[in-house]
Design a protein around this nucleic acid. Sequence first.
DNA 1: ACTTTGACTATAA
DNA 2: GTTATAGCCAAAG
Length: 117
Amino acid sequence: MQGSSSFFERVYEIARLIPYGRVTSYGAIAGCLGLGGSARMVGWAMNAAHTQALNVPAHRVVNRNGLLTGKHHFGTPALMQQLLESEGIEVVDDKIVGFHDCFWDPATELKINNNEF
DNA sequence: ACTTTGACTATAA
DNA sequence: GTTATAGCCAAAG
């Protein structure tokens, strides 16, 4: 497994696994990678992802409060909210409405890997 | 090789 | 409930 060059690519992989209309937090991705308390590195990887020309839905990654903290790193500060609203996620005052409802935890969702309802 | 930063999180007050 | 501080680890300067 791994074989990844840097932990950056691991973050990109998890970010790519975020389903449409779902969001996750930096800490969740960091925990899935085993970094645990180093959620900052996930955000840093996202910043690098912008320069890597990779298809990483960074707009689906927000902080633990469901706040669009990284919106300022997109092309325009309103782009992140625009993308989230485009996916059916309601955003008010840079905050995701019902964040806990559309939250997607990679460590949990990938572990179950069987959403039989 | 050392210092600073950084899209965070948890705990304390 | 909020606000302040410390911890976190890896990459860029």
